[in-house]
Simulated scan of single mutants.
Amino acid sequence: MSDNLARLLVTGASGQLGRLVLRNLLATVPPSRVVALVRTAAAGADFASQGVELRIGDYDRPESLEAAMAGIGRVLLISSNDLARRRAQHRAVIAAAQRAGVRFLAYTSVLHADRSPLGLAADHRDTEAALTGSGLDYALLRNGWYTENYFGALAPALAHGAVLGSSGQGRISAAPRADYAAAAAAVLAGGASVAGHVFELAGDSAFTMAEFAAELSRQTGKPVTYADLPKADYKSVLLGAGLPEPVAELVADSSEAARGDTLFDDSRTLSGLIGRPTVPLAESLAVALTVV
């Protein structure tokens, strides 16, 4: 079957990124070609009503994955958010794809995974190694930071007049999750020309955390500054706010790593894939502030 007729499966389809990918696919290909991998039928009921086939599968139940991929030509593996188990989960998906005869698999990795000092990059490097050694055609979607990563703390930042972090003057080339989803859909629905490609995906423009705080202040009319903290102190704040220890460590580690421009990229590969500029911080922030 040609790539123009192959069925397209999205794993993690009921998650935030997965749902956006499905929405983009349905705007460009017939629903009969789109398959959503979900844990329960209820999780994907709204897409089933649009003609998307649901396949039941679970990263933690490898035996469910091969059957879920039967007849599938191209797969998007959306990385798991289970910090303790995702290496094994990702490898289970790749192995199931091999057994099911999938021809192409795209994986959502992290920006510059091969050289990134981010603690979370190690899991992505492991998955990339498994994929590149699998014999499958593949593409690596190395996603930069989601702009939304910074919106969960808008309310306390406005309440206390401070954005907290450990990023110094590091530049962050963030883009909204929807922009990365559009790129993933384009690659999944694309032809053989994307096989073997490594896409370093990031926003067209970058900001420092001080610039983020200044934009937040500008849009709200409230004084907000950036308070740069040592990693340990920032992690303590996150723990005090109720984040679990592994999550607090990941957030603090990522913030500190950004100090060295780890989250910066000016290749404009993302906007090239989606055929338009990425949405800038000011526009995304304005939308986020409507619900704070």
Rank of each mutant, 00 (worst) to 15 (best):
A175E: 10
D233W: 11
A106H: 08
A159Q: 13
H197T: 15
L188R: 00
G240W: 09
T220A: 05
Y146E: 07
L158E: 07
L140C: 01
R103K: 14
G190E: 08
A181S: 03
F199S: 06
R115K: 12
A189Q: 09
P117T: 01
G119P: 15
A113M: 00
A121S: 11
S217D: 05
A213K: 03
A157K: 01
Y138G: 02
L118W: 14
V110W: 10
V224C: 10
A232I: 07
H124L: 06
S173Q: 06
G119A: 10
L105K: 08
F151T: 06
V187W: 05
D123V: 15
R125G: 10
W145R: 14
L136M: 04
A192W: 05
A232N: 06
L105W: 06
R218C: 04
G161C: 04
A184D: 11
A182T: 09
R218H: 08
D228C: 13
S236D: 15
T147H: 11
H160N: 14
D204T: 06
Q98N: 11
A159E: 13
S134F: 04
A174Q: 11
T108G: 04
L120F: 15
H112F: 13
A130G: 15
Y150F: 15
D126L: 00
Y226H: 03
D126S: 01
R115S: 14
N149L: 14
H197R: 15
D204M: 03
E128K: 01
A178F: 00
L154Q: 03
T108W: 07
K222V: 11
F199C: 06
A175M: 05
R218E: 09
V110N: 07
R125S: 04
A106D: 02
N149Q: 12
K235V: 10
